[in-house]
Design a protein around this nucleic acid. Structure first.
Length: 270
DNA sequence: CTGGTCACCTGGAAGC
DNA sequence: TGCTTCCAGGTGACCA
């Protein structure tokens, strides 16, 4: 579930409730996530007010004054706001208690993270080398063109490299390249400025559309048992191998790039 | 520096 | 029904 749009929808879902709240407690039921949840976390967080929440790439950052709580949803994580007495279920590894509410992390595969950063979060080792925010002005055709110069890697893999652009995972890399009508195997450095402009615009469109789709299910997931992954999104190429391209009718193909599935239309992506 | 491969972990779906 | 195999939305670590 979590690529940038899902994380953004999660952020919007929790921001109002979390901001300004005092952390009344912390529950760590399973510290073995991608990295071990610091044992010192409850002590660091207890009694602190959350000043604000923001997103950097796929990381959620809770500003706690003396430091930041860093949350990452990995491949299978989700966050929910629940009544304080909600019994934890399997894979509910972490709770942040906020008065009568709790913010609960569920993550079956445990690729997610709950970490503490003191001082500047931007300087944290996990965030320091992150690339451009795709929805910001910083990403445009010229910037993308400049970034791709000299890069022999396929454009699909370039898009998924967080040191270049953050938040574009497998689904939206596929979907953005389809919208831009670019073959995912094209070496990044071969893209013209014009095609880079088209791609930059496609990435923004694709992500914004997904955020809008997620926004419509927001109420459910912020409630008790919705899931931010349940978007009523319909993908144009992702997971549609063997089915007809919605634009030209050619059969959508699945190939592997760097051990990840790539889906594209051989008819209109050149 | 770049690019390629592996690893971490669990669960769901498909195949036999 | 039950067992096996494959696949999954991320990304750091390690190697050449």
């Amino acid at each position: 579930m979590p690529e940038l749009p899902e994380v953004e929808v999660t952020l919007r879902g929790i921001a109002a409730r979390v901001t300004g709240s005092v952390i009344s407690g912390v529950a760590v039921r399973e510290p073995r996530l991608r990295w071990r949840v610091p044992a010192s976390l409850p002590k660091r967080l207890a009694g602190r007010a959350v000043r604000g929440v923001r997103r950097r790439g796929k990381y959620l950052l809770l500003d706690c004054g003396a430091g930041h709580l860093i949350l990452h949803l990995g491949m299978s994580g989700s966050l929910r706001l629940l009544p304080i007495d909600s019994p934890p279920q399997k894979h509910d590894h972490f709770d942040l208690l906020l008065g009568d509410t709790l913010l609960r992390l569920r993550d079956p595969r445990r690729f997610g993270a709950v970490l503490w950063a003191r001082g500047s979060v931007e300087a944290h080792p996990l965030l320091r080398h992150l690339g451009l925010e795709p929805l910001s002005r910083a990403l445009d055709g010229g910037r993308l063109h400049a970034l791709t110069r000299g890069r022999r890697a396929a454009i699909k893999q370039f898009l998924m490299d967080g040191r270049c652009i953050v938040g574009v995972g497998n689904i939206y890399a596929n979907e953005s390249l389809f919208r831009a009508a670019i073959d995912p195997r094209t070496p990044a450095r071969r893209l013209s400025l014009e095609r880079c402009s088209r791609l930059a615009a496609s990435i923004k469109q694709t992500l914004r559309a997904a955020i809008r789709a997620g926004g419509s299910t927001l109420r459910d997931f912020v409630g008790s048992d919705g899931n931010p992954g349940d978007f009523q999104q319909r993908y144009r190429v992702y997971d549609r191998a063997g089915r007809p391209c919605p634009r030209c009718g050619a059969t959508i193909r699945r190939i592997l790039q760097g051990q990840r599935s790539t889906f594209f239309c051989p008819g209109c992506q050149r």
